[in-house]
Amino acid sequence: MSRISCYIKVGEVSLHLYQVIAGFILLERQGIIKLNIEIMKNTVQVQTPNNMVEVIINNDIRIIYDLNDGYDNLLNEDENYLDFMNKLLDRCDFYFKRSYSTKQNINLKHPNKIYPLGLNYMVTTSRNIAHRPFPLDPVKEKVKKLIRMLPFSEFYNGNYKLETFQDIPRKQSNPKILFMARLWEVTKEDFEKNPKKGEERKYINQVRAECIRLCQKEFGEKFFGGVNASPFSLENYSDIVISDKKITKRNNYLKKVKESTICISTMGLHESIGWKFGEYVAASKAIVSEQLHYELPGDFLEHKNYLSFNSPEQCVERIYSLLENENYRYQMMVDNFEYYHKYVRADRLILNSILTVLNKERMNLSEQNTHSIYAYI
């Protein structure tokens, strides 16, 4: 049986890329693709920026997978996203982007090359090559990777496998609500360096804090939430800091997610859809989310897969609408279960991108043949 050839060129491997590489490895184990991974040993060989990976399909079709939070988070002060993106689009046939925006793409030189990749979060599989310290990884990341290999570590890779996040929809007569978050440190230097991004961090912190405070007030014991302890959060948001550090450890956090029915999500850096959102979909939860700024593949829809809010007060209103309608709440969980297995699970995420490529290539070939026929008429 012939298999699709996939050649991956890997330089620095960040946490953002674990999901993509895991997807390719799983497809190889399933006998769908033939996988070859080449580890780049110097920066001259690497032509994709951070949080990206280049893949060549069937020795011919060049793909870039971009897992960055937005369009401008890698730019220098004198760069604009159009120049940055156009250079990348010039050197590939297909470009799959996590933070995909039709509005942002419309001014690009090759908007037809770019497609939505889907939800991203830190998820992996056993024996994922991404777990290794790579030659081009920063020294700090190499150390962290070694720590993640230790079974007794809170950040052990085994705690991030597909099955760790996956759950099935469940009807609950006493539904629980969850919002555990981190806050971004905001310093005077942040504002001086990039006032826009400094304001964004300040806004994210304020929305998360106010959502937690209102939910604590409105829902009492039905709600569990707070922010991770850090010098910044303890100094500025001490009233909502989760004092028991055991609860915020990875395994205990995921246990809280699975015990909950309704989970809250807010905007991430660069207006991204945060990792929590993908984790909630994997766990088949009913989701209340701050308005999404990027688009997802498939039929992921507001009111079907999530309810959106534009203020902490509206967040509370959306939660009430789910609490008051058990059937609607359960159907949303079922819809997210279905969407996860079609579009989010690491192997499906990558298989969908490969199918997009193959179908597009087939259509292009068909058009070329049609033009050839007309040439003889």
Rank of each mutant, 00 (worst) to 15 (best):
Leu15Ile: 11
Lys360Ile: 12
Met267Lys: 15
Glu326Asp: 13
Thr102Cys: 11
Tyr160Trp: 12
Pro297Trp: 06
Asn228Pro: 00
Lys202Glu: 15
Glu38Gly: 00
Phe96Glu: 00
Tyr71Ser: 03
Ser5His: 11
Asn336Arg: 02
Glu185Asn: 03
Phe165Glu: 06
Lys249Val: 00
Gly278Glu: 06
Ser126Lys: 15
Ile373Ala: 04
Asp347Gln: 05
Leu108Ile: 08
Asn364Gly: 11
Ile21Lys: 06
Ile57Glu: 09
Phe232Glu: 10
Gly31Met: 01
Asn73Leu: 08
His16Asp: 14
Phe165Lys: 08
Ile204Glu: 13
Val227Leu: 06
Leu27Met: 02
Trp184Ile: 05
Arg98Tyr: 09
Ser321Asn: 01
Glu77Thr: 12
Ile212Arg: 08
Gly198Asp: 07
Glu189Met: 07
Val288Gln: 11
Gln314Tyr: 00
Glu12Tyr: 02
Ile377Thr: 13
Ile147Arg: 13
Asp66Thr: 03
Leu108Ser: 11
Phe84Met: 02
Ile57Tyr: 12
Pro175Met: 01
Met85Val: 12
Ser238Gln: 14
Phe191Gly: 00
Glu12Ser: 10
Trp275Asn: 01
Ala209Arg: 13
Thr43Trp: 12
Tyr100Met: 05
Val241Arg: 03
Asn59Pro: 00
Phe155Ile: 14
Gly11Gln: 09
Glu218Ala: 09
Gly70Arg: 05
